[in-house]
Nucleic acid binder design. Structure first.
Lengths: 334, 334
DNA sequence: TTGTATGCGTTATCAG
DNA sequence: CTGATAACGCATACAA
């Protein structure tokens, strides 16, 4: 690999001059600049980004850690984040959060050690206090998607889980359902709890009973098993609210195997708007999460922070109801 | 951020000694080592990985670029690659290949500029000659998944697309089908062509006619549209081979909307074994690709290369048939 | 067992 | 406009 010194010699100038033309900082005579470019080309010289970073204390790199590489949701997140940061002249380095807060933290630290200029964290389970500690102690800005941290609101990009769950439930109720079961997410997840609370509160608001709440882990299989358990419990219900589309799919499969038609006998509502939704049979009603917008906003906030701008709190992102076949008007009570 | 110098002062030793205890290279008296650790702890000192990399010319980092962040397939790939490299003491940095060979190449170069020790590329469309050039010119080893490069066989981790497609087709034929349509992948993709060729050759081997070949882009929607086009063409067929599960899902939806039952009237075969497959209605027959094993092997080959071991060509990975509901015995000719 | 000096490839501060 | 030269933070050969 050619270094700046090789360029110096070939161009017959000093390192300083080469550096100047490279970063067009300071005045350089046209002719010498040309000579430098000439040398750079013939040598195929590329500046060593490590050395540059060491000298400037800036790597032009953003780090993203996602709680786990799973599902279309994360794909969108990564893609959009990658694209947005590229537009801002920053490379995005992505690391696996490995499903646990511990490994998420490890990933963050290794990104920090690599001197990323900022890190974006999409977490599912890291507790707010831990996040707060990290935000206070990390030498670079930390932006978090999906979790609110008191005192650091501008660095939090959140979705209004509660309201979206309320809307989903209202939709079911508006369709005439009054016995609605639920397959919730993991119990130790803040967002999962918010979705569940929205569901419960909406039911309560309409003086409707809780009829069966089961917990899954967001995977299809867990939705399948939860639904089987629900069926086994013999609690009557005409609609089912699943905390994400994958679990909804699993539930629909379980209902199918039990000989129950969706939506004729039981309506199913999902969450997240998985791209597969429109093609399922029946197609899946869901709540659309603006992941792309959230990813973009996260990067933008990071960039503002880096530029030294004052950043202000961003509004909660809100979902929108996607009406498809899996939810139908209540026909006969079950 | 505390530096090694701060540690020196606090521990009352020289940089060299600190460095020694840090990398346990050379002999250090227990007591002084303890003092160093002491200092490190109270300062919360973390070695600067950039400086270290600059000095050692090794970043302990592997780079992975995937052709696009899309689908469960890539999730598995990234997860396993991440895990494997972590086990080997290397951090995995992931970048988006942005769907085109041009941006894939850009991603590779930016990884190289960041001085990753090796790069793994999962590509869909980068031509073999381009890959060859890269392998020859890059200052670090390049391992490629999913494409064979002449003269660099040991660096290629490939799947036997052709044979797997043959097996899938044989399965359909064994079920009595003799009019089999196909929704293939993009025409400019090598692997897609291999799958299609396997399909065609197997048909030919059994003296069966080609009845309808349509091209999609691996997305669900394209499978949906391709199937509609196929239906519109009025060519009779009793089975459909889709080049991946997403397109198969789209096709099944299109058949459903046309009032055609799967598998009673038409059998559908997928490819890739998407995790959603078992839960679809009907559940989807498919070909399982050992992505995890391939990812792991890719990392392992990279590690061998880095250690200076001689590496030898790895066998083609082969798929296995996953039999589920979507393919049934031919009942009546259509 | 420990310290000194030098180099890794850049940037940046001064002089000239 | 250009060239020395000192950082940047760490590793390492060579002395002591």
């Amino acid at each position: 690999m050619a270094t700046i010194n090789d360029v110096c010699k070939l161009a017959g100038v000093s390192k300083a001059t080469v550096s100047r033309v490279l970063n067009n900082t300071g005045q350089v005579k046209k002719s010498t600049a040309d000579a430098v470019y000439q040398a750079i080309n013939t040598l195929g010289y590329k500046p060593n980004s490590l050395a540059r970073a060491l000298a400037t204390n800036c790597t032009n790199t953003l780090g993203l850690v996602v709680s786990a590489f799973e599902g279309a949701y994360f794909s969108s997140l990564m893609r959009k984040a990658s694209e947005t940061s590229a537009n801002d002249g920053k490379q995005l380095l992505i690391m696996d959060g490995g499903h646990s807060p511990q490994s998420e933290e490890k990933a963050i630290h290794s990104l920090v050690e690599r001197k990323v200029d900022a890190v974006i964290l999409y977490t599912r389970k890291m507790p707010a206090e831990k996040l707060k500690t990290l935000m206070e102690s990390l030498p670079v800005p930390l932006i978090v998607i999906n979790q609110m941290v008191e005192g650091f609101e501008p660095r939090c990009i959140c979705f209004d889980q509660y309201q979206a769950a309320c809307n989903a439930t209202e939709f079911l109720i508006a369709k005439g359902h009054n016995k609605i079961a639920c397959i919730s997410g993991p119990e130790n997840s803040v967002n999962s709890s918010l979705r569940l609370q929205g569901f419960k509160d909406t039911l309560a608001k309409h003086h409707l009973p809780l009829c069966g709440i089961y917990h899954g882990n967001y995977y299809t299989q867990s939705g399948y098993h939860a639904c089987q358990a629900l069926l086994d419990s013999n609690q009557p219900f005409s609609a089912l609210f699943a905390a994400n589309d994958s679990m909804a799919m699993g539930a629909i499969r379980a209902l199918h195997e039990a000989g129950i038609n969706v939506p004729e006998e039981i309506s199913v509502m999902g969450f997240d708007n998985d791209p597969a939704g429109p093609f399922l049979i029946p197609s899946l009603s869901s709540i659309m999460l603006p992941v792309d917008a959230m990813a973009q906003t996260a990067i933008e906030q990071a960039m503002r922070l880096l530029k030294g701008d004052k950043i202000s709190e961003v509004d909660l992102f809100s979902g929108s109801l996607i009406v498809r076949e899996s939810v139908d008007q209540l026909k006969k009570p079950r």
